Simulated scan of single mutants.
Amino acid sequence: MGGALVLDKPYHNLKGIIVSKGLKQKDIAEKLDMDKSTLSMKLNRYRGRDFTFSEASKLAELLGVKMEDF
């Protein structure tokens, strides 16, 4: 029945979007006002870390994409 949302996978699309925009995780972290290591943990969903809705919304705006594209 397909389409199940898997929440334990890292944000591979998001990582690709960041690279395609010519940005570095350090740049994104600064714009989100968070430490680079925290951003990395959230991108990799390390120990269940994930973006808040507010962070994801701001991130989508910064990258010029929809949150669904992550």
Score class of each variant (00 low, 15 high):
Met1Arg: 09
Met1Ile: 08
Gly2Val: 09
Gly2Cys: 03
Gly2Ala: 11
Gly2Arg: 11
Gly3Ala: 09
Gly3Arg: 12
Gly3Tyr: 08
Leu5Val: 15
Val6Gln: 11
Val6Thr: 08
Val6Met: 13
Leu7Met: 12
Leu7Gln: 13
Asp8Met: 12
Asp8Lys: 12
Pro10Leu: 03
Pro10Glu: 15
Pro10Trp: 00
Pro10Tyr: 08
His12Asn: 12
His12Ile: 08
His12Tyr: 14
His12Val: 14
Asn13Ala: 15
Asn13Gln: 15
Asn13His: 13
Asn13Pro: 04
Asn13Tyr: 08
Asn13Gly: 01
Leu14Val: 06
Leu14Phe: 08
Lys15Leu: 11
Lys15Glu: 14
Gly16Trp: 01
Gly16Tyr: 03
Gly16Val: 02
Ile17Arg: 03
Ile17Pro: 03
Ile17Thr: 09
Ile17Cys: 06
Ile17Asn: 01
Ile18Glu: 02
Val19Asn: 13
Val19Asp: 12
Val19Thr: 10
Ser20Gly: 05
Ser20Gln: 11
Ser20Ile: 01
Lys21Glu: 10
Lys21Met: 08
Lys21Asn: 12
Gly22Asp: 06
Gly22Glu: 05
Gly22Trp: 02
Gly22Pro: 01
Gly22Met: 04
Gly22Gln: 02
Leu23Cys: 01
Leu23Gln: 05
Leu23Ile: 00
Leu23Lys: 10
Leu23Ala: 02
Lys24Trp: 03
Lys24Met: 12
Lys24Ala: 10
Gln25Leu: 05
Lys26Cys: 02
Lys26Trp: 02
Lys26His: 07
Lys26Pro: 00
Asp27Thr: 12
Ile28Tyr: 01
Ile28Phe: 07
Ala29Val: 05
Ala29Ile: 01
Lys31Phe: 01
Lys31Tyr: 02
Lys31Pro: 00
Lys31Ile: 01
Leu32Glu: 04
Leu32Val: 04
Leu32Phe: 03
Leu32Tyr: 02
Asp33Ser: 08
Asp33Lys: 07
Asp35Ile: 03
Lys36Ala: 14
Lys36Ser: 11
Lys36Val: 12
Ser37Glu: 11
Thr38His: 04
Thr38Asp: 09
Leu39Met: 08
Ser40Tyr: 09
Met41Pro: 00
Met41Gln: 14
Lys42Trp: 07
Lys42Cys: 06
Leu43Glu: 06
Leu43Gly: 04
Leu43Pro: 02
Asn44Ile: 00
Asn44Gly: 04
Arg45Gly: 05
Arg45Met: 03
Arg45Ala: 02
Arg45Ser: 05
Tyr46Asn: 14
Tyr46Arg: 15
Tyr46Ile: 10
Tyr46Gln: 15
Gly48Arg: 10
Gly48Met: 10
Arg49Asp: 10
Arg49Tyr: 11
Asp50His: 10
Asp50Gly: 06
Phe51Asp: 03
Thr52Cys: 07
Phe53Asn: 13
Phe53Ser: 14
Ser54Glu: 15
Ser54Met: 08
Ser54Cys: 00
Glu55Ala: 01
Ala56Phe: 08
Ala56Ile: 06
Ala56Trp: 04
Ala56Glu: 07
Ala56Ser: 14
Ser57Phe: 12
Ser57Tyr: 13
Ser57Lys: 15
Lys58Arg: 13
Lys58Ile: 10
Leu59Arg: 05
Leu59Asn: 06
Leu59Cys: 09
Ala60Gly: 11
